[in-house]
Amino acid sequence: MPFDPNLPATNSPNSSAEMRSQLTSLKALIDAILTITAAQVDGVNTLPPGNPASVSLSVTGNTLHFTFDIPQGDIGPTGEVTTNDMNTAISNAISGTSNNTNSVSTLGQSADFNYSQSQMQDVLNKLDEFINAARR
């Protein structure tokens, strides 16, 4: 007997058979609910610029399947890069790298167990100089 939300009727006498049937029907409905145990991307499709993005979903067994449709970005400038433009880009990239720390000189001290307060301050000052150079 399928579940009937109208049973038992209001003010009806108790019937164990009717209640058992209702509970059995509810359990069958709960057991029929799919449990997703995995997800899988089946595809990613590129759409022309300006199209809306979308996703398709399906369930096979206990696996949720995705297919994405993603538009291309706007087309940028076309043509070749000149050697001068490339050299400028490389130079700009290098100037923002660890070469910034090349201006930090070394302390030129050797380690011993008798560091004085001024030597420790020299180390701290050099560390600050390095950190500031690395931030450029």
Rank of each mutant, 00 (worst) to 15 (best):
M1P: 06
P2M: 09
D4W: 02
P8T: 03
P8S: 08
P8F: 00
A9E: 14
T10V: 08
N11P: 00
S12L: 02
P13G: 06
P13D: 11
N14V: 11
N14M: 05
S15Q: 07
S15L: 05
S16A: 10
A17G: 06
E18K: 05
E18V: 12
M19Y: 03
Q22P: 01
Q22Y: 03
L23T: 05
K27L: 13
L29P: 00
L29R: 14
L29G: 13
A32S: 15
I33P: 02
I33F: 09
L34N: 14
L34P: 14
A38K: 14
A39F: 08
A39E: 15
Q40M: 05
V41G: 06
D42P: 00
V44H: 04
P48C: 02
P49W: 01
G50F: 09
G50L: 12
N51P: 04
A53C: 06
S56D: 14
S56F: 02
S56H: 07
L57R: 12
V59Q: 13
V59G: 11
T60S: 15
G61H: 06
G61L: 03
N62P: 01
T63P: 05
L64C: 04
L64Y: 05
F66Y: 15
F66N: 07
T67C: 04
T67R: 15
F68E: 03
F68H: 09
D69A: 13
D69R: 13
P71F: 03
Q72P: 02
D74F: 10
D74G: 12
G76W: 04
G76Q: 10
P77R: 09
T78N: 07
G79L: 00
E80Y: 03
E80V: 09
E80Q: 10
T82Y: 00
T83N: 09
N84F: 01
D85Q: 15
N87Y: 01
T88K: 11
T88P: 00
S91K: 07
N92Y: 00
I94M: 09
S95C: 03
S95Q: 14
S98R: 06
S98A: 15
N99G: 11
N99W: 01
N99L: 11
N100C: 10
N100S: 12
N100K: 11
N102A: 15
S103N: 07
V104K: 00
S105M: 06
T106L: 09
T106C: 08
L107D: 09
L107K: 06
G108R: 02
Q109M: 15
S110T: 14
S110Q: 12
S110N: 12
A111F: 14
A111N: 12
D112H: 14
F113Q: 12
N114G: 10
N114E: 10
S116G: 12
Q117T: 13
Q119W: 03
M120I: 13
Q121F: 01
D122S: 15
D122A: 14
D122N: 13
D122V: 02
L124S: 08
L124G: 01
D128M: 02
E129P: 00
E129I: 00
F130V: 09
I131V: 15
I131H: 03
N132C: 01
A134F: 06
A134N: 12
R135N: 11
R136V: 12
R136S: 13
R136D: 09
